[in-house]
Simulated assay, not measured.
Amino acid sequence: MMKILISIYAFLFVLKSQAQEADLNIHFLKNIEFLGYIIELGDPSDNDPDHPISKLIHQYPENGTKKSLEEIFGMGADIDYGVFISLMYNLPEFPLDPNYLLPEEQAAKLGFKTDEEFNFIRKLVQKVDAFYTESHFETIWNDLKPYRDSTLIQIKEFNEIPSIIKEIESFYGSSFTQYDIVPSLTIWSGPGWGGANAEGNTARFILGPIEKDYIFKMEGFQSLAVHEFGHAFADQIVLQHNAELKETEALFHPIETEMGPQGYYNWKTCVIEHFVRAGEVIILEQLKNQSRSEALLQEYRDNRKFIYLDFIVQKLKEYRAANKLGYKNSVKTTLLDLHDSYLKD
């Protein structure tokens, strides 16, 4: 009987461990690497050109003058990188089936809603697919495999990732069934992109190397993960408060000239970024990274001109971090407080 019970407990432990591992998926995506390659050809990174990875990425210098690449740059000039990331993340793996047609529903979720816009984005996808074949990227992808494998080993040894996700879930008061971390060797060092999938069950975090020359390390990864996963939680909640967003819209005017070059062209995107960065500051503090939390607050407020960040951090600490309100009501109350403190006569 004892042996049976031990076997049952062991089986349940294995199942539990497998479930926990399945919640976090760290992997490369060929489509994202190809997008990074396209960006690299148009706007080269500052990586060492003699680095082995750089040499593999640039083994076909003639690709930079392909007509199909020029057409991609021409058509995609006004498309936000985040939209391009979401498009490539959700497309089938390149090369595409010759009969593939981007579904209208998927195009609409990316902001392309009219027939003219459908035709535009579908044509762009076709151009990207054509360049994929012409560029011999399949060879580049295969040649980079040893470096992808070593990078995955390194990131999977970041023991703090589960505690980071746990702290993010605790602050926002919700969770996703899947967390998708997609590193890239071809995207510039430093940036990341976060969000949730259309079904709302997966939070994704796409990132380039933490530092130039393809370096991934825990320092820097922590705050980037908190920030980008934060978008999956915060974006949808902030956008639910239409009335409060409308009432505080005038707050965008004093910082409009500073926000535009950073990619925030209206109050909605700007206020989302304020809340995500406020969450980043608070969660890093809760993760016992006080110095990084304070440094980011100063950087965002003083250099990036997120002038309402101190106020939002203070209010979210009062409402959310102290567990007085859920995150949704914390956002709503904070927006009301913003109005009363900055706009009320």
Rank of each mutant, 00 (worst) to 15 (best):
S7I: 05
Y9K: 09
F11H: 11
L12T: 04
I26P: 01
H27P: 00
F28D: 02
F28Y: 12
E33H: 07
I39A: 03
I39Y: 02
D46I: 11
H51W: 06
G64E: 12
S68V: 11
S68W: 12
E71W: 10
F73A: 01
A77S: 13
D78M: 12
F84N: 03
F84G: 04
M88Q: 06
N90L: 08
L91H: 06
L91Q: 06
L101Q: 14
A107W: 06
A108R: 13
T114M: 06
T114V: 00
E116C: 01
E116L: 12
E116K: 10
I121M: 04
V128L: 08
E138Y: 00
N142L: 12
D143R: 04
L144F: 06
R148Y: 15
I153E: 15
E157G: 06
P162H: 08
K166C: 08
E169P: 02
Y172W: 10
Y172A: 06
S174T: 14
Q178A: 03
L185T: 07
T186C: 05
W188V: 14
S189W: 11
A196C: 10
R204A: 13
L207E: 08
I215K: 02
Q222K: 07
V226W: 00
F229C: 09
H231D: 13
Q236H: 15
E244Q: 15
E244P: 01
K246Q: 14
E249R: 02
T257H: 08
I272H: 05
E273H: 00
H274Y: 14
G279S: 11
I282H: 06
K288D: 15
N289K: 05
N289D: 10
Q290M: 11
Q290N: 12
N303M: 11
F306A: 06
Y308V: 02
K317H: 08
Y319T: 02
A321E: 15
A321Q: 15
A322D: 13
L325M: 14
L325W: 09
Y327H: 12
L335V: 03
S341E: 15
